[in-house]
Simulated scan of single mutants.
Amino acid sequence: MEQSQGKHPAKRSPGRPKRRQEDTPMNEFILKTASALFMEYGYEPVSLQQIAQVCGVTKASIYYHFENKAQLFTAAVTAMMQKARNASLRIMQQDKPLYDRLVELAENKLRFPHGDFETIMRDASASLAPEQLEEIRVSEDQIHDVLTVSFTEAIKNGEVRSAHPLLMAHTLASMLMIGNREIAKEFAPSAGELAQEIVNMFWNGVGVQEA
């Protein structure tokens, strides 16, 4: 157990971390760090001790905020999904043609390459409780909902052909997931170039064909 030192010892619960100099709430800092590590290396290779070391805190500090690795993983992934949803919503609510918004959305997602999310989830699933898996899936669906709403409006406005908007959302998400793998390769095109190429391929399938 850590001992408080100095002229004014603070009474803290065991493992409670001190405030960081940048004054970021510790639980948010831990979530951000854990998200980056899980997305880069996967679930199994990352330990709470490693997360603590990168955060510059003790392992007990991690346990103060999160009961175990599974809870931290769930919280980290859902927080990451919420940020992705908010970013997607901001882009898709702009007053621009749908095509331009999709290119911006694609470039935003490809600018931060990470590991294959489906593979990461497959490896983590055995360690997560059913309710944790459901929480993650719900947060992922909320991102798709943003695109589904946009595609529904675009169909009504005649910007894209009539098709199932949720299927469109999942199709584009899958294409971006593949693009995310490509962007990590040594000789991959830039995020902007690949975003344009992916959206062009997608648009060829859903765009309104001129007579």
Rank of each mutant, 00 (worst) to 15 (best):
E44W: 08
S4G: 05
F66Y: 02
F117M: 07
D100G: 02
E44S: 15
A163I: 14
Q53L: 11
I30R: 08
K32E: 12
E40M: 08
A188D: 12
P45V: 11
T78I: 02
I91W: 09
G115L: 05
N200M: 08
T74Y: 01
Q5R: 14
D100L: 09
E40K: 15
R111M: 06
R20Y: 05
P45Q: 06
P113M: 00
Q71A: 11
E153L: 04
F29K: 08
L48T: 14
Y64Q: 11
E197T: 11
F66R: 03
R12E: 03
W203V: 10
F29A: 06
V208C: 07
V206C: 06
S35N: 03
R161W: 04
A188L: 12
Q71V: 07
V199S: 01
I62W: 00
E182V: 15
E210Y: 01
V138T: 12
L176M: 09
T78Q: 03
E186T: 01
N27D: 15
S13T: 10
Q94A: 12
I30N: 01
V103D: 03
S190I: 02
E104L: 11
Y43R: 06
G6N: 12
Q21F: 02
A87G: 01
G207A: 00
I155E: 02
K109G: 02
Q142M: 09
D95W: 00
R20I: 11
R12H: 06
E135D: 02
S88Q: 03
T33E: 11
N180Y: 01
L166M: 12
F38P: 04
G6E: 11
K32T: 13
A126E: 11
P189A: 14
L72T: 07
G115R: 04
V46T: 04
M1F: 00
A70I: 01
M121P: 05
T171Y: 09
I120H: 04
Q196W: 07
K32W: 07
L133M: 07
E40L: 10
P130M: 09
S88Y: 06
S139I: 09
D145P: 02
I136D: 00
H8N: 11
L98D: 10
A79P: 09
M39T: 04
Q71F: 05
H164A: 15
N86Y: 05
S190L: 03
L72R: 01
N180C: 10
K156Y: 12
Q21L: 14
W203Y: 13
I91R: 05
A60R: 08
S13G: 12
D23I: 04
E140C: 13
G56H: 13
P17T: 01
K185S: 08
